[in-house]
C-alpha cells in the first residue's frame, strides 16, 4: 500500500453501464432501473458472462446501454429468446428487460411458459401502466379510470377488464423461484428494488429457476405529469393496486402468499389522474 488514505469513491457510474447518454425522458425511471441493474451486475461480477435481452418498448435501445453482450428481441418474445440463449449456453447469466405492454400483453404466453419451465433466466419487468413508446396507449396494467390515448374516458372495467397482476400469477408456477414487486418512487424503494434485482440474479446463479422483479415505474411524458407528480402517482395510485412484496422466494419461508396479495389488489380503489 503506497498511501495510508485509500480513495473510496462515494459515487461513480457502474462499469456495466455504457458511457453514452440515454434517450429516456426527464423523470423516467427506466434510467434509474438501468443503473441498478448495472450496479448489481458489477457487484456480482456478471458483465463478462451475461447476455441481456432488450425488448420492444421505450427500453428497446437497452442493448446500447449495457456493457455485457446483448440481443434485441421481437415484441413480447424476450423470454423465448432468453430461453434459446440459456439452453445452449447454460454457463451464461441471461436476463431480459421488458415493459408491461411487451411482457403483460403481447408476451404473456412467453413469460408464463418460461416461468413454468423453471427457465433459469432473470426478468426485469417495468410496469408503468402504459405503452410509453407508442405514445401512451392503454396496457393491461393500466389502472381503472386511468386516461390513456386509447381509453380517453378512463379505463372501464366492464369494457377492457382490470389491471393484470402478473407477479401474482407467475408466483403460482412451480418453476418460479423468485418473484417480487418493488417500486421506484423514492430512494428507499429504489434500494429495495436493488435488493430484489440482486436476489433475482443470485437465484439464477444458484440454478434455482425462474426469477422476475416487477418494478412500478413512471412515464411522466405519457401520464401528462411532471416527474415529481409522476412519482407521487406511483405511490398513491399504483402501489395500492399493485401491492409490493416478495411473492415467491426459494430461500425464505416468509414469502407473502399470492392469495393475500390478490385480495389486497382487489380492494384497491380506482385511480385518479393520468392523462
Amino acid at each position: 500500500m503506497s498511501s495510508i488514505v485509500e480513495r473510496i469513491p462515494v459515487y461513480e457510474p457502474p462499469k456495466s453501464l455504457s458511457d453514452v447518454s440515454s434517450h429516456y425522458c426527464p423523470g423516467c425511471t427506466h434510467g434509474a432501473t438501468h443503473r441498478i441493474v448495472a450496479e448489481v451486475m458489477d457487484e456480482l461480477g456478471l458483465t463478462d458472462k451475461a447476455v441481456g435481452i432488450a425488448s420492444v418498448g421505450c427500453s428497446v435501445l437497452a442493448y446500447n446501454y449495457f456493457e455485457c453482450d446483448m440481443q434485441q428481441a421481437a415484441h413480447g418474445r424476450a423470454p423465448a429468446v432468453a430461453t434459446g440463449v440459456k439452453r445452449v449456453r447454460p454457463e451464461l447469466v441471461v436476463w431480459t428487460y421488458q415493459g408491461d405492454g411487451d411482457l403483460a400483453s403481447i408476451g404473456t404466453n412467453e413469460v408464463i411458459h418460461a416461468a413454468l419451465r423453471g427457465e433459469k433466466i432473470t426478468v426485469i419487468f417495468i410496469n408503468n401502466a402504459i405503452y410509453g413508446m407508442t405514445g401512451g396507449q392503454a396496457a393491461p396494467t393500466t389502472l381503472i379510470g386511468q386516461k390513456t390515448a386509447t381509453t380517453p374516458f378512463g379505463r372501464d372495467k366492464s369494457w377492457s377488464g382490470s389491471p393484470i397482476h402478473l407477479s401474482e400469477m407467475l408466483a403460482l408456477q412451480e418453476g418460479a423461484a423468485f418473484i417480487a414487486r418493488t417500486s421506484t418512487h423514492n430512494p428507499a424503494h429504489l434500494g429495495r428494488t436493488r435488493a430484489a434485482i440482486k436476489r433475482a440474479f443470485q437465484t439464477q446463479l444458484e440454478g434455482k429457476g425462474f426469477s422476475l422483479v416487477e418494478i412500478l415505474s413512471t412515464c411522466p411524458t405519457n401520464w401528462g405529469m411532471t416527474p415529481v407528480e409522476a412519482l407521487k402517482w406511483v405511490e398513491e395510485q399504483m402501489v395500492p393496486v399493485y401491492p409490493l412484496g416478495i411473492f415467491k422466494d426459494w430461500q425464505a419461508d416468509g414469502a407473502r402468499s399470492p392469495a393475500a396479495a390478490g385480495a389486497a389488489a382487489k380492494s384497491a380503489k380506482p385511480a385518479e389522474g393520468g392523462k
Binding site: V51, I53, Q71, A73, A74, R77, A80, V81, A82, T83, G84, V85, K86, R87, V88, R89, L92, N109, E110, H113
Partner: peptide, 26 residues
C-alpha cells in the same frame, strides 16, 4: 444437444433466434 418443445411456433422461432445469436447450429 438441446431439444425443447416450445409453447407455440412464435416462441420456437424466437428460441431459434436466441440460440443462433449465441452461436450454435439450430
Amino acid at each position: 444437444g438441446v431439444f425443447l418443445q416450445a409453447e407455440s411456433e412464435l416462441a420456437a422461432i424466437n428460441m431459434v433466434y436466441g440460440a443462433a445469436g449465441a452461436g450454435v447450429r439450430v
